[in-house]
């Protein structure tokens, strides 16, 4: 049986791991390669590396880091941050990334999704959606959550799917960094209405939150950062408790 995936996310700045709490107040949580290897040993199913500074100067540092990661781990990993063209993605693919995650660039120019899919296949393309609840529905934000767009999350996710993306990484900005649980409503709505996998992100604080996002919101995978980096929720314990609750886990 296909299992639910547990995905630690490593935010990278200048080659080091950081994690934003509500996207500010960065804390250092170590060397990305060492952390990645440790997550593989703990039983993480996949990893995500986001280059949060993603400037032109940092690009080379990041692709070198991607090469080192590819040499060190034997589980799939996604990289993201500032990817806005087929050429950007190609550099990261050649460095050994299994998937790329795109966000602001896809909103700015949705054809980028099709171009990446045509060049590298659906399995390579993850579209990240940062979202926030408004009175009239969930809306899409870009630029690390700093800028509101006119897009609503549900139709945008459907467009992303119809353009061929292989997966959606949904982050609720209202929940991110709060440790109060995932956004079950929007995650569930997307998961039930899309035919591609949905990764839930933002708000994980304890094991119950993971049980809820898999059982109540039918997420295909759940992503978290600081609670893993600082050992607040050890992955082996998380997985054994999920299994006890009848959730299919590796």
């Amino acid at each position: 049986m296909l299992t639910k995936r547990i995905i630690p996310c490593l935010d990278i700045k200048d080659g080091r791991t950081v994690k934003g709490v509500n996207f500010v107040d960065l804390r250092d949580a170590g060397d990305p390669v060492a952390l990645a290897v440790s997550y593989v040993e703990q039983g993480a199913d996949e990893l995500v590396f986001l280059d949060i500074t993603a400037t032109v100067e940092n690009r080379k540092t990041f692709s070198e880091l991607v090469s080192r990661i590819a040499g060190a781990i034997n589980i799939p990993f996604t990289v993201g941050g500032g990817i806005s063209s087929v050429a950007d993605a190609d550099i990261l693919l050649s460095a050994g990334a299994d998937k790329v995650s795109i966000n602001s660039a896809a909103v700015r120019r949705p054809e980028l999704i099709n171009e990446l899919v045509d060049n590298f296949g659906s399995q390579f393309v993850v579209v990240a959606i940062d979202t926030k609840k408004h009175d009239d529905g969930w809306k899409v934000y870009v630029k690390g959550g700093r800028e509101e767009t006119p897009l609503y999350t549900i139709p945008w996710a459907q467009e992303v799917q119809s353009r061929g993306a292989g997966e959606i990484l949904l982050t609720s900005m209202d929940h991110d960094g709060t440790k109060g649980g995932f956004a079950l409503d929007i995650t569930g709505e997307l998961s039930r209405n899309l035919s591609i996998p949905v990764i839930a992100s933002g708000g994980a604080g304890n094991i119950e939150h993971f049980i809820d996002v898999f059982k109540l919101a039918q997420a295909d995978a759940a992503l978290a950062a600081s609670i893993f980096h600082f050992g607040e929720v050890p992955i082996p314990q998380l997985k054994s408790e999920l299994a006890e609750h009848g959730i299919s886990i590796r």
């Binding site: 049986m1 296909l2 299992t3 199913d45 035919s195 591609i196 996998p197 039918q218 295909d220």
Partner: peptide, 16 residues
């Protein structure tokens, strides 16, 4: 052939 939310296409992830 897709079978809705419980069987998404592609199959992506760990299976036995």
């Amino acid at each position: 052939q897709s079978k809705g939310a419980s069987f998404k296409i592609p199959q992506m992830g760990w299976n036995n």
